[in-house]
């Protein structure tokens, strides 16, 4: 009997490991810091996680489709710089439209190279990471940009405003995640993304237009990055040229923590949300406990490795295995 009970616990861990880890982190931090479990602090964490969270929603779609997108970090820099710079020149409305359009063009370049030309997504998006950073610097000539009239512009709503008493970034993050979750879990489009990520050849043999589908996943991750740029630009009302540097790894960390397989074909948007929040809580909790800012990088890495290892171990039934 003990054997079966152990097995159920193991299965529970395998299936809901991410939720359990989440709960353990919350309890742990709550025990060690009395400032942690306050509504203000929790809202702050979610709000700070929103930018990475919004991007992670889009990147999850790309990863389920069997590809990577490492270009989102410098894409965030580009889009933030663009929207902030154009704000004073052509007004916030047009600035937003132009920025989203330009971001989608960058996504289309990724989508064309990976989806249509069938190049390796790691190489394409790593190259785009550097190319877009160069593009941003060419655009600004190396100068930082900012918005002059920070007090009265309605553009402040995205990063500093509230909707029904909840901070706008939180509303946008959770709303977008919920919307994308519904798309992925319940629409034919979502089903096709899972199929292409799971077995691209079989998907083609089933009459799915693979190139077009992969292309559209990159448009989605570009769009979510554009939305993240709105929040970021609006929050700081200015931007450095390299403001998004390193975000691609944090985004990917959130996706992986959420249990999405880098091999494609499986994953879940809502679990990505939890993955992103765990990262946010680790960062916040460590700060509250008095550790220096950079300690989070080490802890984050350990958490990701443990999460991935446990995930694989649960699938194959033991920690180390001579065969895959």
């Amino acid at each position: 009997m003990a054997d079966t009970r152990l097995k159920t616990i193991g299965e529970l861990l395998a299936r809901q490991g991410i939720l359990i880890a989440f709960a353990i982190f919350l309890i742990g931090f709550a025990v060690f810091s009395d400032r942690f479990m306050t509504p203000e602090n929790l809202a702050t964490v979610i709000r700070q996680a929103a930018i990475i969270g919004v991007m992670a929603v889009g990147v999850t779609v790309v990863v389920i489709g069997g590809n990577l997108d490492l270009s989102v970090g410098s894409m965030l820099s580009f889009s933030t710089v663009l929207v902030v710079d154009l704000h004073d020149k052509i007004g916030p409305e047009l600035a937003i439209v132009v920025m989203l359009g330009a971001t989608l063009v960058l996504g289309a370049v990724n989508g064309f190279l990976v989806g249509v030309a069938r190049l390796n997504s790691l190489i394409v998006t790593l190259g785009m990471l550097s190319a877009i950073q160069g593009l941003t610097l060419i655009y600004t000539g190396g100068k930082n940009v900012d918005i002059l009239d920070q007090e009265t512009t309605w553009f402040a709503i995205f990063g500093r405003g509230y909707v029904a008493g909840i901070a706008t970034p939180i509303v946008m993050f959770l709303g977008l995640a919920l919307f994308m979750h519904v798309v992925m879990a319940y629409t034919p489009f979502g089903r096709r993304v899972y199929a292409v990520g799971g077995n691209p050849t079989a998907a083609v043999f089933s009459g799915i237009r693979r190139s077009r589908l992969v292309f559209s996943t990159y448009l989605i991750s570009a769009l979510t990055t554009g939305i993240a740029a709105l929040i970021l630009g609006s929050r700081v009302m200015g931007s450095q040229n390299n403001v998004g540097q390193g975000y691609e790894l944090l985004v990917l960390a959130g996706v992986i923590l959420g249990g999405t397989s880098l091999l494609g074909g499986s994953g879940n948007i809502l679990k990505t949300v939890i993955g992103v929040l765990i990262l946010g809580f680790i960062q916040n909790g460590l700060l509250l406990m008095g550790y220096p800012y950079y300690a989070q990088w080490l802890v984050t890495w350990v958490v990701i490795i443990l999460a991935v290892w446990l995930d694989i171990a649960a699938k194959r039934g033991r920690l180390l295995s001579p065969i895959a």
């Binding site: 034919p188 089903r191 096709r192 899972y194 199929a195 799971g198 077995n199 050849t201 079989a202 998907a203 043999f205 089933s206 009459g207 799915i208 074909g265 499986s266």
Partner: peptide
């Protein structure tokens, strides 16, 4: 290699080519 998405469930594999119409 060509017929199945192995990680996908039985139902979704069967309906895959016509999921747009369902």
């Amino acid at each position: 290699e060509q017929g199945l998405v192995l990680g996908m469930n039985c139902r979704d594999n069967i309906t895959l080519p016509q999921v747009d119409d369902l």
